[in-house]
C-alpha cells in the first residue's frame, strides 16, 4: 500500500511573527517542517511499518520547501516531491487541495494520505478534509493511533470526552493528532539519503491542471492588540497579612 504524507514548510514556532502593511513577516527566522506535519510523517511511517509500501512526502511551496521535504526523507520517507508553480503564489487552502489531489493521483497507487491537524502559519486546519473531498475519499480527523487489519484501517481518535475507535476501508485520508506519539528523529541513514536526494519538482503543467482559483483573501492583517499590564506590589507586615490582601484584590478584580 502506498502512502502519501502532505507537508508544509512554515516559519519556526519560535519566530516572532508580525503584520506590517497587511503582510506577514517573520524576519530571518528559519523555516521548518510544520510541527503538526511531523506527527503526520510519524503516522505515515507507522502505517508503512504495518502495511508495507512506500511513503511519499509531498509539499506545495517554493524551492525552499525542499528543506522541509528533506526532513521528511531523513525521518524515513521513501521519496519526496515538490509541487511548485508561480501561479500558486497566493493559493488558499482549497486551491492547495486541488493541487494535492492532482499530485496524489499522479504519484499513483496511493491508498492513504496523512495530514497534520493544521499548519502553524495559516492555522486553517481544513486542507486535509478539502483534499479528501476532492479525491472522493473517506476522511478520519485527529487520529491518535493507527492499525491496519484485513485491508482496512482501524484508528483511534482521542477527544476530551474519551476515545473513539473507527474503522474504514481504503482509500482514506487521515489528519493526525499529537497523541500518535513523539515524531521519530531523523536517522543518520536517513540524513545521508536526504542530503543526497534530488527532489523532483512538478509544476501545474506536469500535474495536468489549470491554476485553481483562490476564493479566500486576506484583505487585512493586523497584530493582536497590545495588552496593558499593570504591576501592583502588595505589601504588609506579615505573610498572613499579604496573603489576605492578595485574596481581597483577586476577588475585587474578579480574577477568580
Amino acid at each position: 500500500m502506498n502512502i502519501a504524507v502532505c507537508v508544509k514548510q512554515v516559519p519556526d514556532s519560535a519566530a516572532k511573527v508580525v503584520a506590517e502593511d497587511d503582510r506577514v513577516s517573520w524576519g530571518d527566522a528559519p523555516l521548518v517542517l510544520n510541527p503538526w506535519d511531523e506527527y503526520a510523517v510519524e503516522a505515515a511511517l507507522q502505517l508503512q511499518e504495518a502495511a508495507g509500501g512506500e511513503v511519499t512526502a509531498v509539499s506545495v511551496g517554493g524551492e525552499s520547501a525542499k528543506e522541509a521535504l528533506k526532513t521528511a526523507l531523513a525521518m524515513g520517507c521513501t521519496q519526496a516531491i515538490l509541487v511548485s508553480d508561480p501561479a500558486l503564489a497566493a493559493a488558499d487552502s482549497q486551491a492547495i487541495a486541488h493541487v494535492l489531489c492532482a499530485a496524489i493521483q499522479k504519484i499513483g497507487g496511493v491508498e492513504a494520505a496523512c495530514f497534520g491537524r493544521q499548519a502553524i502559519d495559516g492555522d486553517m486546519g481544513v486542507t486535509g478534509a478539502q483534499t479528501a473531498h476532492l479525491l472522493g475519499w473517506l476522511m478520519l480527523g485527529l487520529v491518535s493511533k493507527i492499525e491496519f487489519k484485513d485491508g482496512k484501517l482501524q484508528v483511534e481518535r482521542s477527544f476530551e470526552e474519551g476515545i473513539q475507535i473507527a474503522e474504514c476501508p481504503l482509500p482514506a485520508a487521515l489528519s493526525v493528532s499529537k497523541d500518535i506519539g513523539e515524531p521519530r528523529y531523523p536517522s543518520f541513514m536517513g540524513i545521508r539519503k536526504a542530503a543526497r536526494a534530488e527532489i523532483p519538482t512538478w509544476d501545474l503543467a506536469a500535474l495536468g491542471i489549470e491554476a485553481p482559483a483562490s476564493v479566500v483573501r486576506w484583505p487585512r492583517i493586523s497584530n493582536p492588540p497590545v495588552r496593558e499590564i499593570k504591576t501592583e506590589m502588595i505589601e504588609g507586615g506579615s505573610p498572613q497579612e499579604i496573603a489576605e490582601k492578595l485574596v481581597e484584590r483577586i476577588l475585587e478584580e474578579k480574577v477568580l
Binding site: 526532513t71 528523529y185 531523523p186 540524513i191 545521508r192 542530503a195
Partner: peptide, 19 residues
Amino acid sequence: LTEEQQMAQQMVREFAQRE
C-alpha cells in the same frame, strides 16, 4: 556546513535538549 552535517547536528541537539 554541508546539509548532512547540519542535519546530524540538529538531530543530536533534539535528542540532548528533549530527552
